[in-house]
Computed example of a mutant assay.
Amino acid sequence: LIGHSMGGALALALAADYPDLISKIVVVDAVPCLAAINDPAFKSKMNNDCSATVNQMTGMTNDQFYDMQKKTMPSLLADTTKLDMVVDWSVKSDRTTFGQMYCDFFNIDLRERIAQIKCPALILLESYFINLKPAIEGQYRNLKTANFQYATTGLHFIMYDDTAWYLGQLSTFLKQ
């Protein structure tokens, strides 16, 4: 199971909830608790109210939402040839779902739950995250099968920014 960003958190959650079902996971540029990067004491909220985020996303005009995505994506993607494609994916997303998922993603905390994961786990991280290595690897301390690899170039969309490295990491891990 391979997941990028929110999908990486989903891969962690599924592997924790179904430890005998999944044989390997690849987590691409995701951490067990995004909010804990800035606040290590973060505690997720039960019944988190995402209505403000959903209302903000759904309250934008198409042009406003497009402009927001067009301004945000360059901080996540160094390969400018892929910029329009990634922005287009965002713009085509259902805004209610987009807002709900964005809000939920900042409330999830899998730091303890990942102790249930039994399968090998390849954790691929963008180059900047080497600067946060102790905090990131600390979040994964309960995942005993974690194999951390940090890209040497690129941003959040490392599959585009450092494609050869990314595909090499996948190939090696999947063959093991």
Rank of each mutant, 00 (worst) to 15 (best):
L1M: 15
S5L: 09
M6W: 14
G8T: 03
A11G: 12
A15I: 05
A15H: 03
P19M: 05
V26G: 14
V27D: 05
A30C: 09
V31P: 00
V31D: 01
V31S: 01
A35H: 04
D39N: 15
P40V: 11
A41H: 02
S44M: 01
M46Q: 12
D49Q: 07
T53Q: 09
V54A: 11
M57S: 04
F65N: 07
Y66V: 12
D67C: 09
K71A: 11
L77E: 06
A78F: 10
L83I: 13
D84Q: 11
V87H: 03
V87W: 02
D94E: 05
D94K: 06
T97W: 12
M101D: 13
C103H: 10
F105E: 09
I108A: 12
D109C: 10
R111I: 00
R111Q: 00
I114M: 04
I114H: 00
A115Q: 15
A115H: 09
A115Y: 04
I117W: 03
P120C: 10
A121F: 05
I130M: 06
I130H: 07
E137T: 15
E137Q: 15
Q139R: 11
R141P: 03
N142I: 12
T145Y: 11
Q149N: 11
A151T: 03
A151V: 03
A151M: 04
G154V: 05
H156T: 06
Y160H: 14
G168S: 08
Q169N: 09
L170A: 02
T172Q: 14
F173I: 06
L174G: 07
K175F: 13
